[in-house]
Design a protein around this nucleic acid. Structure first.
Lengths: 189, 189
DNA sequence: ATGCACATGTAAGCTGTTACATGATTTC
DNA sequence: GAAATCATGTAACAGCTTACATGTGCAT
């Protein structure tokens, strides 16, 4: 059983919310869901073409003078059906790889300062995510009443919040632990 | 700049702790660090061979009658040097993909029961991780005094603890939210 | 008897990344 | 004048997964 191509469904999903170009989908990924999903142009454009050939989406080309033509893709009924089938399927086990932890494990001979730098960087990345999800959460809770899928969006945002908070707490704890360890053992290795 | 092959360093790292076979490394991954790192035989054996050709590891074959021969790999000085260089480098940004959240986002027309099933499954997976890391933490805190790299191992385990706890809390919160939403709106879609 | 642990590997194929290619318009 | 945004795509390659191939010894 070959594994499922997730990009297909990310694109179908995005187009199920609203039609758009490859460029639009990329923007959506980078700006809205980057904290749990990314896509690549070199993946988006060919897969979009493939979905079109399979009749899961169709294309409408918009010509704006002085701009490159926009290929706006729309999901078809077949596309919606296939997306739905996938949504109902259980989540596949992901072979998640957390490079920071791998490095940490083998860093017995690495200067503490170097490790702490990495942790600080991680913390700052997670803080950005936390700021973003907090903003979105605020906006959602105040402005929007009960639009379709609102509660699911909120759930995703809350996931980001829980996880980034946990990451930040771990970074702080670990940095403190390393500093203490450094003092006790007087080594900067 | 091509991206770095992480498997190389995972193998070098494992062999820097103690020599072992491809089989041993796989066991180590599956039993000890599966919650943040996985490796595959079809990746391990060829990379081990490649590392040997580059002189970063060397092989000693043990023959035990009635068993397949074990190729035990040892890290060389060059291997240690290359591992160290990598350890000092900043962590590369990972394009992390969280399938459950992607599904969630597009699940406006999916029965709540199906979504809750997925969340329960996620929760049970994370609970297993939490049990495992709790066990390891207990063992480490009581038994082992201050072996080399002990505090780094502990940090990794604590990361697992923070993250799995956060995941479980999010699952609980989200399940409760979906149930409430289901009652309010009386839809099982 | 059935299955698990031990033990090593290859082939095929898909996925995803980097780098390349092009060029106008708007913003600072 | 430089940089960002808009906009689409391809080629080459690296990485990872699945499936296949093979066989013994021990525990239940």
């Amino acid at each position: 059983m070959p594994r499922i191509n997730k990009t297909r469904y990310a694109l179908l999903g995005a187009l199920s919310v609203r039609p758009g170009s490859g460029y639009d989908i990329k923007k959506f990924c980078d700006r809205s869901i980057a904290f749990f999903w990314t896509e690549n142009y070199a993946q988006i454009y060919p897969v979009l073409k493939q979905l079109e050939q399979e009749g899961l989406v169709y294309k409408e080309t918009e010509n704006t003078p002085g701009r490159p033509p926009r290929n706006v893709y729309h999901i078809t009924e077949e596309g919606r059906a296939e997306l739905n089938d996938w949504l109902l399927l259980p989540v596949e086990p992901s072979n998640f790889r957390w490079e920071l932890l791998l490095k940490l494990l083998f860093s017995g001979d690495i200067p503490t300062s170097n490790i702490i730098e990495k942790l600080e960087k991680k913390k700052s990345e997670e803080s950005k995510i936390l700021n973003y999800v907090n903003e979105v959460e605020e906006k959602m809770k105040s402005a929007e009443p009960d639009r379709k899928g609102w509660h699911l969006w909120l759930a995703a945002v809350r996931a980001g919040k829980h996880l980034s908070q946990a990451s930040i707490a771990w970074c702080d704890e670990t940095i403190a632990m390393l500093r203490e360890y450094e003092i006790e053992n007087g080594n900067n290795e």
